[in-house]
Nucleic acid binder design. Structure first.
Lengths: 224, 224
DNA sequence: CATAGTAAGTGTATACTATACACGAACTAG
DNA sequence: CTAGTTCGTGTATAGTATACACTTACTATG
């Protein structure tokens, strides 16, 4: 038994919110739209999700050719939710399944005029309802960073305590006390000192740490 | 510019996870399927979401005629997420937007053979991937109850401290200490004693409380 | 080589929160 | 009047959160 053809479904699309931390600020990947609708506006990268393909499969295909990244290699990727208002796409009713991702190392292969990272607190005018989608993505990111060791996806393999505190501060959008942060963070047993150092221009070298596991785990406490 | 017709979208559907607490146990509303696929299996109530209607509008229409409830009157209703595996519906690729709801007072107008509440820890065999959907719904419910005053949606207008503790225990799936629970809960300033009592068969009467607000608010602390 | 400059690294005191735990009070039924 | 049942309550202790400032280890420069 197939679905009756008297029903016409909305168009289904996928969008990706890819976060990273640059210079202590939370950034999101945007694509400059080459065509209408919203030509020359910045938008979340996304595309059409056809029948017979999961939205994750569609996302992988689309991000590969539009952005030049492999979403399977992203350190964190999860579904956010569906956005389904009828008027959100001027071409007609399109329901978008938004995905949220975090990764500080994957680089798009496109030019900066086509694809670029923007600080989330200083975004350009965006196409569609992508402003709203990013807002919910930030809320989810804060939640996940608070309950898991997801912060590792926003750090390089070796990092200093200042790096990791800056990453938390970028996600939370507020400053943390250095001594209290380190006490709480070390109690979570997430990182190990490597014995290596980062040598700064003009100050005491900083110990370099690495995460103990490569998996994303629930944490007993949070740092916010 | 319309979407090119060379793309065929999956069918879009909606499903509802409606929670309530009965006799200290968390229950979920299920519908006995009158037709194939999965004829005579229990399932989450749901239906087709056509182009031109938001999934929430579709949900309202469907629940009205299939279950006899008005989802706008539910004390809590929110989108959970999309479920989109290709094989989840034997009729063909159907992406479902699942909604989560909590309400202890709305009653379906259908017979118990058609529509009934089942304890979440004692569910019958379910159609589709509805077992998985319910599991994620429970996870979300716990999260929301822990961060908001959503517990009020699972209680009658007047309730005892034993009632509210039982509701929390039903959601969390574990017992809480009575004295510590009351200390923590009262500190949240959510309820006021009404001066009324619930007179039990054979024991001291229990004070009846009511919630101070009708809105769902974030809480500073949680009880889990 | 001495000094200035910079970021790293660290501890303590205090307030608050979490947990464990038991018994008298207030009612009804017989 | 007694037995039975649920209600309502406090304290002590351990653990956690917060506020707060100086010394250390290096580089750059004169």
């Amino acid at each position: 038994m197939k679905y009756a053809t008297k029903y016409v479904s909305p168009v289904l699309t996928v969008d990706l919110i890819l976060f990273r931390v640059i210079d202590g600020r939370l950034n999101v990947l945007l694509l400059n739209r080459p065509a209408n609708p919203f030509k020359d506006y910045w938008s979340l990268p996304g595309g059409y999700a056809p029948r017979g393909e999961t939205t994750l499969e569609a996302l992988r295909r689309i991000m590969s050719y539009k952005i030049g990244i492999d979403v399977k290699k992203l350190a964190y990727l999860d579904q956010l939710r569906a956005f389904d208002t009828v008027a959100r796409d001027p071409r007609g009713h399109a329901v978008s399944i938004a995905y949220i991702a975090a990764d500080n190392s994957v680089k798009p292969t496109k030019t900066a005029a086509e694809v670029a990272f923007f600080p989330v607190d200083n975004l350009p005018e965006l196409a569609y309802d992508h402003q709203d989608i990013i807002q919910l993505g930030r809320d989810r990111l804060i939640l996940e960073v608070n309950h898991t060791n997801l912060i590792k996806t926003l750090l390089p393999p070796l990092f200093t305590m200042a790096d990791i505190q800056a990453a938390y501060e970028a996600v939370f959008g507020r400053e943390l006390d250095k001594r209290n942060f380190q006490k709480k963070f070390f109690k979570l047993n997430q990182v190990t000192a490597t014995g290596k150092f980062k040598y700064n221009a003009n100050s005491r070298p900083a110990k370099l740490y690495k995460f103990n596991t490569s998996t994303i785990n629930q944490l007993s406490n949070n740092l916010d």
